[in-house]
Amino acid sequence: MDNNNQFARLDNTKIIDIITKIPNLTDDDRHELSLRVASDDVEIRKGALEKITQSQIAQHDLMAIMGELTALNKQGMYVKSKQTIKTGSGTFEIEMKGGDTKLIIPVLVILGVVIIAALVIVFWK
């Protein structure tokens, strides 16, 4: 991401130029309007910087979460997680379920065999 490019989009020269060209304004009016443009610009840039910081934090958080989840998956652990992260331009929600399932099938087969065997023993005469 090129923040300089983004900041360049907050250009004020065009509006200052328009104000200068509006015919029936006094010098005081022009001065007051220029001050207003400058003050608005400061406010907007401040907000934009906050968003950039927010986005960097989100990116860092997300990397950390993903790293942990990958590590847990590699260890063969069943993982269920839901994360909501506020980014610079919105929200990011990731819900994950899964992990190692290799053990489930043998467990189910053994359980089935045990149930059937128990039933046969109980009712067999």
Binding site: L25, I44, K51
Partner: peptide, 26 residues
């Protein structure tokens, strides 16, 4: 009045730009 309106429209437009600043990044 027109000058004030244009400055106000400009502010809103810049605010929208700054709100969307990071969307492609995100």
């Amino acid at each position: 009045y027109l000058a004030y309106e244009l400055v106000s429209i400009h502010k809103e437009a810049n605010k929208a730009v700054s709100n969307s600043f990071l969307n492609s990044n995100d």
